[in-house]
Amino acid sequence: MQHDMSPSHADKNHGSLKSYTIGFVFSILLTIIPITVVMSGWLAGKASAIILMVTAVLQLVVQLIFFMHLREEKKPRYNLLTLILGLIILLVIVIGSMWIMMYNMVAL
């Protein structure tokens, strides 16, 4: 449609078939890896938990970049800023709850 406009606008928030397909392949791979780790029982305990969390976070990054086009945002990057704020609140809630409820228990 607007491909002859200035480059910064030509592909604003669009992506291409290629970028969507790359993202899809990545997300499939990042799902197969944790499934194999758990189902085959290669790694136990902490090592497996770390691999599971790392692949899940990478999956989030893949979706943000390839599907939600976070990287192609225009200059005042309000989307990125609100995302960072949301993630900070998320981490405070989750890690704070875990810390207080699981590692700080008094008497029990």
Partner: peptide, 24 residues
Amino acid sequence: TFGFWIYLMTDVIIFGTLFAVYIV
């Protein structure tokens, strides 16, 4: 669209809270 994005961030907080509850 940006307004919807802000709504999504509040949804992040809802799910974060439910995840925290589940983990605990």
